[in-house]
Simulated assay, not measured.
Amino acid sequence: MAIEITVPSAGESVTEARIARWMKKSGEAVKVDEPILELETDKASLEIAAPAAGVLTVTVEAGQIVKIGQVIGSVDPSGKATVAPAQATVEKKADPKGEAKADVKLSPAARAMVADSGLDAAKVSASGPAGLVTKDDVLKHQSAPAPAANGTAKPEPTRPAKSDGPRETRQPMSMIRRRIAERLLESQNTTATLTTFNEVDLSAAMDLRAKYNEKFEKKHGVKLGFMSIFAKASVVALKAFPLVNARLDGGDVVLQNFYDIGMAVSTEKGLMVPVVRNVDAMGFAEIEKEIGAVAKRARDGKITPADMTGGTFTITNGGIFGSMLSTPILNPPQAAILGMHSIQKRAVVVNDEIVIRPMMYLALSYDHRLIDGREAVQFLVRIKECVESPERMLFDI
């Protein structure tokens, strides 16, 4: 008797999903617990495994919107396969075209482009974490001028070549991107958002990293980054100004006496904000490890709705993309979000002398219904004090 495949519950308030792709074809043999399809909700992507060994029957094709609990296929334990394994077909088609060697790490989108275009993946410069080749890396490699015979770059043509492809392409917005758009619009329409700015001298933090990073990494297996320093500084400031860590619930102000901080992560599917729990009880090493773990799950498409709910405050770092200044948008029901930016050496006055220091602009967007300008400014000043004098965080002063 065939065993039905239904759309599982994907978290509170999630009522529908989109079938992103079937990893196996209808009529193909599958193994128990083998991933057979990818579902995309407005919060995360989920891999669904085969409930039993047998032959797969697909009843709802990829790209369709489905409801939680809906039957989308089945597995017949006594059935006979009528389709060859999909993976073998893919490999036969991909190998003659593009080279994706085992020692080259590629994102799923980059791997597909390499396979279709015939590129040698080893020649593409990687910009992603841990040497990951991204879709943008492949596009940049394809648009780079080809080298001439003497090794110098060929001059670009004076007139661009006419494209044989369509001038426009249309594709459906992903469930995650659609939800991001809805939440951003909701944030703008339902909060009284105001942003205050300050700047921080990172000399002391950079000296601290230079002095201890080698020993820190050797002992803990992770590097000492700026995110853990700003996370600890945020906890100090949140304790000093509890309203920044609060939320509005109807006509009530809910003071939250825990510190679960969202860390914005950019992925190929859009911006996600996984939450690092109980940051106040963590040391720098624990924070760095947890940030790395949740960011990896987000980029690998393995993040779950539980990973992104319940945060009390958010930190976003546009500086990794070169942003010098921005106004972050609130992540409701949170009342505030801290924006970090790129570090630039600038001339500043210290003790009546002009010196060159590594400076970063900070931005705090906050809900003015709950937080007054005075508290917001003082909160940002407290973060500045902690980052400029990291010992304050060690002695909680």
Rank of each mutant, 00 (worst) to 15 (best):
E16T: 01
D116N: 14
N351Y: 14
F230I: 09
P305S: 14
S174N: 07
M340L: 13
L56P: 01
S228K: 13
P172G: 15
R357S: 03
Q256V: 04
V265G: 10
Q344A: 15
V133N: 03
K296S: 12
I72Y: 14
T309K: 08
P358E: 07
L338Y: 00
M282N: 02
V138G: 02
A240I: 11
K302Q: 11
I19E: 05
A109N: 08
I383L: 09
V253I: 08
R369W: 05
D95K: 15
K232L: 12
V235E: 12
N257L: 00
S45L: 12
E375Y: 08
T304W: 04
V71H: 05
V235K: 12
P332E: 05
K67H: 08
Y212I: 07
I315M: 07
F379A: 02
E217K: 01
K154E: 14
V273C: 06
K24T: 01
P332L: 12
L362C: 06
L394T: 11
K289P: 01
G54N: 05
K384T: 01
S234H: 00
L338P: 12
A149F: 04
K101V: 14
D95C: 14
T89A: 15
K97T: 02
T134A: 04
T190R: 04
S26N: 06
K140A: 03
T193N: 11
G165I: 14
T193A: 15
K289R: 05
K140S: 01
G11W: 09
T41P: 01
M272R: 03
V222R: 07
Q64A: 11
N331E: 13
S45Q: 13
N150S: 09
D367Q: 10
S326H: 07
V104N: 02
I315C: 07
D136S: 06
N317P: 06
M272L: 13
I320K: 08
D136K: 01
P77K: 11
Y361K: 02
I65S: 08
D300L: 00
R382M: 12
A62P: 00
V381L: 08
K296I: 10
T190A: 04
K92H: 14
T89C: 13
E99A: 14
A161R: 10
H220N: 12
E385Q: 15
V349K: 09
V133E: 01
A146C: 03
S74I: 00
G131L: 05
I315F: 03
V124S: 02
P328H: 02
E214S: 15
F216A: 04
M393H: 05
P77M: 09
L362Q: 00
I329G: 12
S365D: 13
V381E: 05
L330H: 12
T89E: 15
A146G: 04
K67D: 10
A231R: 11
